[in-house]
Nucleic acid binder design. Structure first.
Lengths: 218, 218
DNA sequence: GTCTATAAAGGGATAGAC
DNA sequence: GTCTATCCCTTTATAGAC
């Protein structure tokens, strides 16, 4: 397996067509179960055309994962929330991020990367850098500045960002990854975000407040 | 794929021999890449013998996952810590659980189950019930009793247990799952456990203490 | 570049002897 | 129950015409 050199290489329309089809088949069936025949058929081209653009199954797989991760990363370049209060920013960021995590697309990418990271060691790193790493970095920056403004008490911003994401994912993400829960009710989603924000603020508040509620309902 | 009826069925020695070999091959190579030839060779028997004990590749795979989950579950039946102080129990439980999570065996099972849960819907549930579910249940019970004794302030014990495990897994577990970090230093391990316990106690302490430290070092 | 047709190999599953 | 040998299908990858 060799990684594609150009990050935003301009590919021929046919190549894009093949990539789109390959993404569908690979992410739906997994690497092992996906066949080049199925990909060619889904793309509406012959296998020879697929091989004219990609060296083989491995290269094609790497290409679709890299492209998916790049798109993933593009979605994570939103605004920081600016000058809003910490709780609002956390709620907004938490809702956005958990929503992205629970998307069928994101879950499919995660499953495939986890499954094949043993055989394609580069994949795990590509995924981590393009996804979790960016989220952690942005969150860490926000928490650090909030701490500088005295809005939070944070000794280790990286660890604090890690903690917020850990609180956020919780049982919901694991169940979705394992295919146990098909869909998430808006109620359960909001309750998870609210509970994560609430618990995080109780742990990292600048001055302990005894009146703060612990309830997850909004 | 059909699930094995007997939970603790007594199998012939040859069957156990095949199961052991199959576990090694499946967990190392994944379902798709593992071949029945490789399993038979690893077990030191012929393929016909494998098929004499298991209906096919699917049934064999299901059997090894179920056995692995059952063994997994057996490891989680430890003591509750009894009357020790909350912080000590959390540190002990957290250390044990994170240690189990980061075991090569546990990681391999998790990867394979995640990878194949789409094609074998029962696997995800079997894994969740035998692993995370038990941990959450035990932890939830402990937190509830600690709250009853006034040692913690917990409105929703299930959510609190979820939060502790989320804090515990953090970046470390994800990196290991993705194959980024080969081994974990004892220092990083302890720091993660300590940070999780510290943050959890700050969020769920019965009475906010302003003097408590946030540092993750011990 | 793109197609049809095919080669070459591997893997799941089984027949029949013992 | 266990083995050897084999069937049969799928899959990857390519050759050659256009």
């Amino acid at each position: 397996m060799q990684t594609v050199a150009d990050p935003a290489a301009q590919r021929s329309p046919k190549a894009e067509q093949v990539l789109d089809a390959a993404a569908g088949v690979f992410l739906e069936q997994g690497f092992g179960a996906a066949s080049m025949d199925a990909i060619a058929q889904a793309a509406g081209v012959s296998k020879a055309t697929v091989y004219a653009h990609f060296a083989g199954k491995d290269a094609l797989f790497a290409a679709i994962i890299e492209r998916a991760c790049a798109r993933h990363a593009a979605l994570l370049a939103g605004s920081d929330g600016g000058d809003a209060d910490v709780e609002s920013v956390l709620r907004s960021v938490g809702s956005d991020f958990l929503g992205l995590l629970l998307t069928p697309q994101t879950l499919a990418i995660f499953r495939v990367v986890v499954a094949e990271s043993a055989r394609f060691p580069a994949l795990g790193r590509i995924f981590f850098e393009s996804g979790p790493r960016r989220v952690l970095g942005r969150l860490e920056g926000f928490l650090r500045s909030a701490a500088d403004r005295g809005q939070l008490r944070v000794d280790d911003p990286h660890r604090a960002a890690e903690h917020f994401l850990g609180l956020l994912k919780g049982e919901l993400h694991l169940k979705m990854v394992l295919g146990i829960a098909e869909e998430v009710s808006a109620q359960a989603f909001d309750a998870t975000v609210e509970a994560a924000v609430s618990t995080f603020l109780r742990a990292y508040a600048p001055q302990p407040s005894t009146t703060e509620t612990q309830s997850a309902s909004r």
